[in-house]
Every structure is written in structure tokens, then in C-alpha cells.
């Protein structure tokens, strides 16, 4: 087994991304989807850090990229949870399957 290198980190990020993706498309509850999306965001951060550590990218870029990504993710989760709360208050459910009035 070689030293932990770029390939390993990128594969880890890809695996995490896939896990998050699977969770996002298979979850019934909106909160579960949010969690899976969060996992996907984390995987991107891992990806970036892998590149920062093991490859010759501009380090500052990678750090700022991931910080901004965290900012974006935080904002999105805030909005997402607010939406889920609003939906729950109105419809008493947070299962996305129950919200299918709009179609066509």
C-alpha cells in the first residue's frame, strides 16, 4: 500500500460524494436530503484539501475555495432548514413524497 496520496484523497472524496448523492436521491425526508447534500459539500472540501496538500495548486486558492464553499453551504443549509420549517408548519410533514401537489 503506497503512501496516502492524491489518488486516495480524491477517491475518498468521490466516495463521499457518491454516498451523499445516494442519500440525496433516496431519502424520504427533507432533512435527510439536506444532510446528504451537506455530505456532498464536505466531500468537495476534502477534494480541495487533497489537491492543496498533494498537488501543485496555489494553496491559497484551495483554502479560500473551501472557505467560500463552507460559507455557501452554511447559507444554503440555513435557507433549506427555514424552508423545511415553513413547510412543516403549513403541511405538518417534512417528507418530500407528501409534497407533490404541483405536477405536470
Amino acid at each position: 500500500m503506497p503512501t496516502v496520496g492524491l489518488t486516495a484523497v480524491v477517491l475518498l472524496a468521490a466516495a463521499l460524494f457518491a454516498i451523499g448523492l445516494y442519500g440525496a436521491i433516496s431519502n424520504d425526508s427533507a432533512i435527510g436530503i439536506l444532510i446528504s447534500l451537506e455530505i456532498m459539500a464536505i466531500s468537495i472540501t476534502v477534494n480541495l484539501m487533497g489537491f492543496a496538500r498533494f498537488s501543485s495548486v496555489a494553496q491559497a486558492n484551495a483554502w479560500f475555495f473551501s472557505v467560500f464553499l463552507m460559507v455557501i453551504t452554511a447559507a444554503e443549509i440555513g435557507i433549506g432548514l427555514a424552508l423545511v420549517v415553513a413547510v412543516y408548519r403549513r403541511a405538518r410533514t417534512s417528507e418530500v413524497d407528501d409534497l407533490s401537489e404541483l405536477k405536470g
Partner: peptide, 23 residues
């Protein structure tokens, strides 16, 4: 509730694809 439903769908689908984009 329709508005919220639409917003939730927009949000979740958009975040999903945004994450594709960012990845």
C-alpha cells in the same frame, strides 16, 4: 403550501446541481 412546495423543490434540486457544479 404550493409556494413552499415549489420553493423546496427548487431549493433541493438547485443545491444538488450546484454541488455537482462545485465538485
Amino acid at each position: 403550501i404550493q409556494g413552499l412546495e415549489g420553493a423546496l423543490k427548487y431549493f433541493l434540486l438547485s443545491v444538488l446541481t450546484s454541488l455537482f457544479m462545485i465538485y
